[in-house]
Amino acid sequence: MNKAALKRMTRRTEFYMFIVLILLCVLVQIKSGGKLIAFPGIFTRLNVTVLRTMVVDGMFAMCSLVVMISGGFDLSFPAIAALSYSLTCTICLNNGWCQNSPVVGFLLAAAIGWVLGMLNGWIISNFKLNTMIVTLGTQTLFTGISMGLLALKEITSTLPNGFKTFGKLYILEGVDGKIRFTLSAMVIFLILLCAIVSFILNKTMFGRALYAIGGNEVSAERAGYNVRKVKFLLYSSVGALSGFVGMIRVCMESQSIPKAMVGREMTIIPAVILGGASIFGGEGTVFGTVVAVAIISLVSNSMLLLGIDTYWQQFFNGLVILVGVTVSALQAKRQKQ
């Protein structure tokens, strides 16, 4: 690595976040008496739990990341996810579907999410409105549909078996004393999604379009991108992905709770910002986002262990928002100069 490349690296938020993550790991490892990482087996009860927590948050963070890179804000993805999975589970339950295989459910949820995302995409690309305002509106609309219009109910013990067993799949099993721990197979989805998003962002013209639009929308249009088409495709894909991730969540938790996602955007978006995405668009990487989600998961899962009152969780979340936004704003300021 040459000097210039090294210098470039040290100017990125991700780099510092990665250092923070490492330091945090060391701290937890020492304070908990070696519970975070086992030698030589690596996996422990604590780290599989952290990884497990990262699955859903990490996948939602990918939804948020791509939108933020394009210079937008999507506040509606949790509402899309909630409506998609609640409706899917209700339909599957009523028709006796997905007793063995969850595939139909996942396709259905993604399709519903896709339709809802298209509404976002259509409004944003046709009327050129502020994305935050539009998705704030659709968020309320979607929540209203699921709670009011359809009055979707919680589904817990009656959840189709296909979902329950799918959520319990694991790729690794270990024993700590008498206590069994497993690494959820859902982690594969997180890794796959990260790889796909990373490929799209870095290796496809669509991905570069997102960065270009986030950097300068007028220039992107002049350069020949069909900005309207790109935005429509972006928001509808994010909708479909949200529906899919929502189903993963349902399977992992063995429950479909229509209002469980309310307000999730307020923890996901700050994480994405903390991971180096700019609130002004054009910046952000998969790596940085994963690191930020890992930090948040690690902290929330080790607070009790380290003897920190759960009240502090809120304090920490607030801190994440402040630090993330401040760093992002400072970086934008520096670039302006």
Binding site: T53, I179, E253, I257, A260, N301, M303, L304, L305
Partner: peptide, 26 residues
């Protein structure tokens, strides 16, 4: 010693807390 924990009326949080509690108090 932790005496009481709160799960924000969310089964997922109750699950996470149980995992963590068992970690802290084997």
């Amino acid at each position: 010693p932790d005496k009481r924990v709160e799960d924000n009326s969310d089964a997922q949080e109750a699950y996470n807390l149980t995992m963590q509690l068992k970690e802290k108090y084997p």
